[in-house]
Design a protein around this nucleic acid. Structure first.
Lengths: 140, 140
DNA sequence: GTACTCCCTGTAGTAACTACAGGTTCAAGC
DNA sequence: GCTTGAACCTGTAGTTACTACAGGGAGTAC
């Protein structure tokens, strides 16, 4: 770890891999605190802010919503934070991810099924279109 | 099939289960053609439009985007439509659904893993927070 | 004739950004 | 000291797929 000075927004974007505008957006919605500025108004991010952005980006990659990240961060900000609340939030999120997977898996089966019937080519009309018009055997 | 007269927007919404405003939205973006109107401007939907909305709603349930539905409908509108193009569109969509499932499944494993380590309770700090700060063993 | 529901329009709000326009400021080279 | 170009600043609009609302006109029952 050698990066331990304040940096500007462009450098923070480069280091974190985050879009430049997204950093300002996160500040606007309160995920990042407004940082110190130079006399002329340029933002200056100390290492703590850099770590916080990393936290946000990793959370985002794990599919946490902005609201969930806000909750998570407010827990982190309150020393000592409650590990149980963090776990609850994670488990709730996990449940919604699992629900989404289940939904998509049902979808996948329907699509695969309909596509396979089309590829068989042993029907006069297009079974995909029939399904969408609610006419085919695959109608939900 | 007994429903074969023209109906107004509210009735179409009730029959199809579609939100009232969504019907107007679909007209605005060109998914539904502008229907005939009464002298005073009320929209009148013949059975063809009702079937078309059903098509759109079923496609939507299968996760097709508006743009994909536009393509699908323009294929349907061109008689005779190419069954191969319909299948290609469906298979592309299927591929993206599968990719999404794969993404979410990876996510699910990470979340479940991190949550399980927290529930073990045999660590001094919260492993979920550690992961998000890029400190824990679960850091991606 | 009035009360009530339905329908009309345009516009704004949602999530989570991303992009743009129009204007400073900074750093380097000459 | 001056100029050039990159980087920064701000506010605002666009993205997807709707949903909701405000303020008005139309249709129907009593």
């Amino acid at each position: 770890m050698t990066a331990s000075q304040v940096i500007k927004r462009g450098e923070l974007a480069r280091r974190s891999g985050c879009n430049l505008e997204t950093i300002r957006y996160y500040e606007n919605i309160g995920l990042l605190q407004p940082p110190e500025r130079t006399a002329s108004g340029h933002r200056l991010y100390p290492p703590g802010d850099q770590a916080r952005l990393g936290f946000i980006l990793r959370g985002r990659d794990l599919g946490f919503s902005i609201e969930e990240l806000k909750s998570l961060l407010s827990l982190v900000d309150s020393h000592p934070y409650s590990c149980g609340e963090v776990r609850d939030l994670t488990n709730n999120h996990l449940a919604s991810v699992r629900a989404k997977i289940a939904d998509l898996t049902r979808l996948e089966r329907t699509l695969a099924d309909v596509s396979a019937r089309c590829e068989g080519g042993d029907v006069p009309e297009c079974p995909i279109i029939d399904t969408l018009f609610g006419r085919g055997p695959g109608a939900r």
